[in-house]
């Protein structure tokens, strides 16, 4: 799984970095940032999904592995 954050939509609610600190962090104004390249380790998939579903701005997209494979093949 991979997360995509739309920083144009993010308003710094902070739900994602509260729920999924493994995947998201915050900048010095409180807006969300994705750690690394956004690839989610299997152990963190549950919290990454929760983060996406709790974002009031719908700013987080989840790309499932099969879609990722489809895109690169």
């Amino acid at each position: 799984m991979k997360v995509l954050l739309d920083s144009g939509r993010c308003q710094g609610h902070g739900r994602c970095y509260d729920l999924a600190p493994e995947v998201f962090g915050e900048d010095d104004e409180g807006y969300a940032r994705v750690h690394g390249d956004g690839v989610v380790l299997p152990d963190a998939e549950r919290v990454a999904t929760l983060a996406a579903k709790n974002c009031p701005e719908n700013a987080i997209d989840l790309i499932q592995d099969n879609a990722l494979q489809g895109a690169t093949s």
Binding site: Q11, H13, G14, K53, N54, P56, E57, N58
Partner: peptide, 20 residues
Amino acid sequence: REENSHVAFGLGIHRCVGSH
């Protein structure tokens, strides 16, 4: 409730600055 994208602190550019 685990999935809760409520908007108690508003939405958009005026999201409550004191929400945290």
